[in-house]
Amino acid sequence: MTDQAYNFAYLDEQTKRMIRRAILKGVAVPGYQVPFASREMPMPYGWGTGGVQVTAACLVPEDRLKVIDQGADDTTNAVSIRKFFQRTAGVEVTEATAEATVIQTRHRIPETALSEGQILVYQVPIPEPLRFLEPRETETRKMHELEEYGLMHVKLYEDIARHGEIATSYAYPVKVEGRYVMDPSPIPKFDNPKLGGNAAIQLFGAGREQRIYAVPPYTQVVSLDFDDHPFVASKAPHDCDLCGASESYLDEVITDDQGSRMYVCSDTDFCATRQEAGHHGRLGVPQFSSKKIAKSLEGFCAAEGVTE
């Protein structure tokens, strides 16, 4: 049921129009950060307000919404955001990537390939890929205008000189359609190859920093690298201990105080679907699912005060 005290999808119509205009301009100039007058939302800045505003501007009553955080549907913040839209937009929700029409995500791209008709909305903390090289917005804006991305290459090259490889493991910068360098949000670089040529519309919302940007379907997205040090999408060199997947991104879970570890898919829907289909890994007994692990952590989460 929609909460009648609020407009459909919470935001007022004028705000939604403003956000929608920004989204369309973002789509027209892939990778370019469009400023928008982000509103205070009933959840804190830094907790997905940009993604929430973009999702609110996109939702229709017929949508099926999936919300993930760290790849999981049942992390507390994902639950909180999903609940918010159930309450204010009355949309159906789902955990199945393939069934969802809109997916709001924090820090992951689902393992299951997306399709046409789907929208992936990213929550973005710092949209400016050059920010940690140059703190001033006035400067970074000029650098984008002049396509002056030398500083970024120098930083990556310094990594190689010092460490023998590029020491950026998440929020790995990309170039979109050969023009704008873009921050893909703090997804692990393992996910970077899914940004380009994706069938879905990818929208990025940064609420506190007041920026929206987009990657339309089938757009060229290239992770920055060098000819002699090509980009590598890395992950833990293990298989999922629950479903046995070898090609999915893994979370490392410490299982006792002796340093024992298990590796499980960070994408809980992907993992559960594989287990249901009969796949199992090293510890993949049917009653031991990643959802159970999330459940066992809930007391910990509440005690930490993660309430929204």
Partner: peptide
């Protein structure tokens, strides 16, 4: 305050990526 306090949200995906990197290096 929002941005400051958001660092108590789960970040284990990013941390995992860092963990792998540090182990490799």
């Amino acid at each position: 305050t929002g941005f400051l306090e958001h660092i108590k949200l789960p970040h284990y995906v990013d941390f995992q990526a860092e963990l792998e990197l540090v182990r490799r290096l």
